[in-house]
Nucleic acid binder design. Structure first.
Length: 698
DNA sequence: GTTGCAATAT
DNA sequence: CATATTGCAA
């Protein structure tokens, strides 16, 4: 039989495998003594070495006592003391032995369940000896990859799946036969014969070829992990090794990641330039906001494992830039630069040179960053001029200082949101996205539609890398719903976003974003900033309404055990201004659609992530992400790394349904009454401190 | 030792 | 052809 030939060839060199599968050690488990006896006899006829037990618990005990005592486990599914699936799972977790499930029921669901839980085979009772004769193949298959790595896997770890690990399978789950839809090149459907021979030849020699990494295959989608890792680290800081560490995917190499990163960057570059073109095409007039939503692509997690990168779903923008998106009706077409162009204060990005080259955002108009038409980034501010529109950024304070910046606008219906991710290198890695949106303005409101938003970063201190960071990104846990734009900086910072009233007399279309010390006057004062070196401002003038929206989010890992997302703040301003306070110090994160907040009126908004105080564990990261409203709306749920649903958009839209916001609600309400000075003690288990929050508010 | 880029392989 | 892998210089 070819099987025998193949087997002989394959195991021929392995001394102890000469006799294989004769004497293969099998643990048979079945609560029914009769069935067990029958099974035992059949197995013995196959010349296996059989050990039996009628208790799953006992079986587990035996297995644990000596993990190398058995080569394979055959277990009944239905057992009184322990579900066969449970046993299966435990075995898979603890010893990575092939497990064959036995059941009298051919229920597809059961079979599926068994396979999903890692069963390498699922046999129906009564079992025929013909079936048992072949079960050794499961042992062989599993041992095969380890043969050459025998030394490495003596620990009993489940490293035999190194190859499979590259596919993103969690080690705990046997990967032998599942995922029918998945095509893995290293996996021949026929388990033996010539295929094995050729494989063997390759394995044996140094010419063994690496299995190709399937970044997009499979439910867990390595690319998602990749994106998450990149976002976690921040675009510039995302280097292959760090990404690899974060991803923590077995079998994946740094080279794999480097390659993928390369491709990813190229993609972003391309995407951005394309978008720039589109933006240009769109022009200031008639461009339909919804047809081009660069930020929509921030949701990298909507990408499904097709192996194709979709513009709509990839996550192209490094979040740590300041991005000004002036689009649409605001008519902010800057000297031919896309009206939705992205701009960055060079100080916020430590290296424009690099960015200009590597960051698509700066490739707009195919010009070096500092030579953008009308945009100057050579100093600490960027100015964009087009007609009445001016955008300028200036970076302010030193990196080590707490910083704040204020965003203000007089656009009647501007929506504003500010978030922060702390990136030490950037001094402040505020994420800022300014986006013009088409929206009806209903009048200027009592303040003439002016608004401002202050963002304060109180804790730019770098955080030690969380030891648990590696757990954050998945390990097979469901994270497919992560927003792609989540960023996980290495340290957190306090962020406060406060809606404030703009100074009277500001131009009707005026937006300022300034950086200043917390103690400074937080108010944007005209533009451009008169202080060249230490204040930053962004002035935006347009004759039409402009919305700014920036959402910051913080995702945090607490000792690697959990992730927290701090969210984003948005402010809808128009006439009255409403700001959204979000804090997901607990499990939550929240995103509030500004559109739904319009009703909330005159509230000054304070948003602060206080958790980063040294006393709590939020220091591991303070990711930020930006979404535009539509994007956020598109996300149904966000999940934390434990697979818990952190936020349900619908709930959020209907109000801060998330319980974690209850206190915040109160806080916001209180704050909205301009009672910041009062201490509102709302402490949660995470040390959320309303008082400090209040103090951060203007 | 890493990284990023370019050449090469699939 | 797109993408993964490999090679190599910085």
């Amino acid at each position: 039989m070819t099987v025998e030939v193949g087997r002989a060839n394959l195991v021929g060199e392995n001394e102890d495998m000469d006799q294989f599968p004769i004497g293969m050690r099998i643990l048979a488990v079945d609560d029914d003594p009769i069935c067990l006896k029958v099974l035992e006899n059949l197995l013995r006829k196959c010349q296996y070495h059989v050990t039996t037990t009628n208790q799953a618990v006992q079986a587990l005990k035996m297995l644990r006592e000596n993990k190398n005592r058995f080569d394979l486990v055959i277990s009944d599914v239905n057992m009184p003391d322990m579900d066969g699936f449970k046993l299966l799972e435990l075995v898979g977790l603890e010893m990575d032995l092939p497990v064959i499930m036995l059941s009298a029921h051919s229920n597809t669901k059961l079979v599926k369940k068994g396979v999903i839980h890692g069963a390498c085979d699922y046999l129906l009772k009564p079992v025929r000896i013909e079936e048992l004769k072949n079960i050794w193949q499961h042992v062989l298959r599993r041992k095969k990859p380890s043969a050459k790595n025998q030394n490495k896997r003596t620990n009993g770890n489940n490293t035999s799946q190194s190859v499979e690990g590259a596919k993103g399978f969690p080690p705990a789950i046997s990967t032998d036969n599942e995922k029918p839809g998945k095509r893995q090149k290293d996996q021949d459907d026929d388990e033996e014969g010539g295929e094995e021979d050729s494989t063997y030849e390759n394995d044996d020699s140094s010419t063994q070829k690496k299995p190709r990494v399937n970044w997009y295959d499979g439910d867990e989608n390595l690319h998602r992990k990749f994106v998450a890792a990149v976002n976690f680290l921040g675009y510039e800081k995302a280097v292959p090794k760090k990404i690899l560490d974060l991803m923590n995917v077995e079998g994946l190499t740094r080279e794999n990641v480097a390659s993928h990163l390369q491709k990813y960057r190229q993609y972003l570059k391309k995407l951005c330039s394309e978008e720039a073109q589109q933006c240009n095409m769109m022009g200031a007039f008639g461009g339909k906001q919804t047809s081009f939503r660069p930020m929509a692509s921030l949701n990298g997690f909507s990408m499904t494992g097709i192996g194709r990168l979709s513009n709509a779903t990839f996550s192209p923008y490094p979040s740590r830039e300041i991005v000004g998106q002036l689009n649409s009706t605001s008519g902010l077409s800057l000297h031919g630069i896309a009206s939705s162009g992205m701009f960055q204060s060079h100080k916020w990005s430590s290296s424009l040179n690099t960015l200009g080259k590597s960051h698509p955002a700066f490739l707009l108009a195919n010009e070096p960053p500092h030579t953008f038409n009308g945009i100057s980034t050579s100093s600490d501010h960027i100015q964009l001029h087009r007609d009445k529109c001016t955008l300028s950024f200036k970076e302010s304070n030193s990196i080590n200082d707490a910083s704040s910046f204020t965003v203000s606008t007089s656009f009647p219906d501007a929506r504003m949101a500010v978030g922060s991710s702390s990136n030490y290198d950037f001094g402040s890695s505020h994420l800022l996205m300014l986006r013009g949106q088409k929206q009806q303005i209903q009048g200027g409101g009592e303040f003439g539609g002016q608004s401002s938003l202050k963002v304060t970063l109180d804790n730019p201190e770098p955080l030690a890398n969380g030891t648990g960071v590696s757990n954050i990104l998945g390990h097979g846990e469901s994270n497919k719903n992560w927003p792609g734009s989540i960023q996980l900086p290495k340290f957190s910072s306090n962020v406060s976003v406060t809606g404030i009233y703009p100074p009277a007399g500001m131009p009707a279309t005026y937006l300022t974003i300034s950086s200043a010390q917390p103690d400074n006057n937080n108010f944007p004062i005209g533009f451009p900033s008169t202080s060249v070196d230490s204040s930053s401002q962004l002035d935006l003038r347009g004759d039409t309404q402009c919305y700014e929206e920036l959402i910051g989010s913080v995702v945090e890992a607490m000792n690697g055990r959990s992730k927290q997302q701090w969210d984003a703040a948005k402010q809808d301003y128009y006439g009255n201004h409403s700001s959204i306070v979000r804090d997901s110090l607990v499990s939550g994160n929240s995103v509030v659609d500004p559109l739904n907040q319009i009703a909330n009126q005159n509230n000054a908004i304070c948003l602060e992530n206080i958790g980063s105080s040294s006393t709590n564990q939020l220091n591991d990261g303070a990711p930020t992400f930006i979404h535009d409203g539509a994007e956020i709306s598109a996300m149904d749920t966000w999940m934390n790394y434990d697979g818990k649903i952190l936020m349900d958009q619908t709930k959020l839209q209907s109000g801060f349904a998330n319980s974690s916001f209850n206190s915040l609600d109160e806080l916001v309400n209180a704050l909205s009454k301009q009672d910041q000075d009062q201490s509102i003690q709302i402490n949660d288990e995470f040390g959320f401190d309303a008082q400090s929050l209040g103090s951060s508010c203007i």
